[in-house]
Design a protein around this nucleic acid. Structure first.
Length: 204
DNA sequence: CACGGGATCGTCT
DNA sequence: GACGATCCCGTGT
């Protein structure tokens, strides 16, 4: 059974907050090192230059790292956090719009044994993929994939719509995690997660 | 269960 | 030279 991949028109939507919410319930899929893994997206955060101080590209600041965020929607933006964790984002909007959605948690669906092996965890539990760093680790995603296409037929990472219905009124919003440095923007409720699952990151 | 701190390095000042 | 869109483990209760 194969499912349609989300295409350019989905990612090129210029409303990154709307895209973030509509990513809930979709399937993130990776085919890395010959291993097929997938999971239901349960938690996301939106980041939007130029006005969002929590966004790496705040004020449209271009650096070698943030340049990827200015690309047309439909590519991955992966960067290293705290020297250890690889955080996976989906670039959205038009060219020169530095918008992205951080995928923070998934509910693992396929490739569980590989994910557990990559994580060093013996049995299935939310700790496997709930949290942006551990999600990437379980899926095999590293900074090597920054700039990687999500829409080309031969890409290693993509997102599928499997047509599964789930009640959109179960979306919960909250301030984003770990952006307290971003002054007034820190309060923007741009973190979204499914209210009816335990597969979300812990509040800290 | 809450809290505190260490790990670890690319990126920008 | 400082710090971060995090995670894990140890300690104490």
């Amino acid at each position: 059974m194969t499912y349609p991949r989300l295409g350019p028109s989905f990612y090129q939507n210029t409303d990154v907050v709307a895209v973030a919410q509509s990513l809930l319930g979709k399937y993130l899929v990776s085919n890395i090192d010959g291993e097929h893994c997938s999971g239901l997206i349960t938690e996301v955060e939106a980041y939007r230059a130029p006005d969002d101080k929590a966004c790496h590209a705040y004020n449209n600041r271009r650096t070698k790292r943030t340049e990827i965020m200015f690309w047309r929607g439909g590519v991955a933006y992966v960067y290293l956090c705290y020297g250890i964790h690889h955080l996976f984002n989906v670039v959205t909007g038009d060219e020169d719009m530095a918008h992205a959605v951080l995928i923070r948690a998934i509910e693992a669906k396929e490739g569980l044994p590989v994910m557990e092996q990559r994580r060093g965890i013996a049995r299935e539990k939310p700790q496997l993929t709930a949290g942006p760093g551990v999600m990437s680790k379980a899926m095999g995603i590293t900074t090597a994939y920054t700039g990687h296409s999500l829409v080309k037929p031969d890409s290693s990472i993509w997102i599928e719509d499997r047509g599964e219905e789930w009640p959109g009124n179960e979306i919960v919003s909250s301030p984003r995690i770990g952006v307290g440095y971003a002054a007034e923007c820190a309060a923007w409720p741009w973190r979204f997660y499914m209210g009816n699952t335990k597969w979300v990151s812990k509040l800290r």
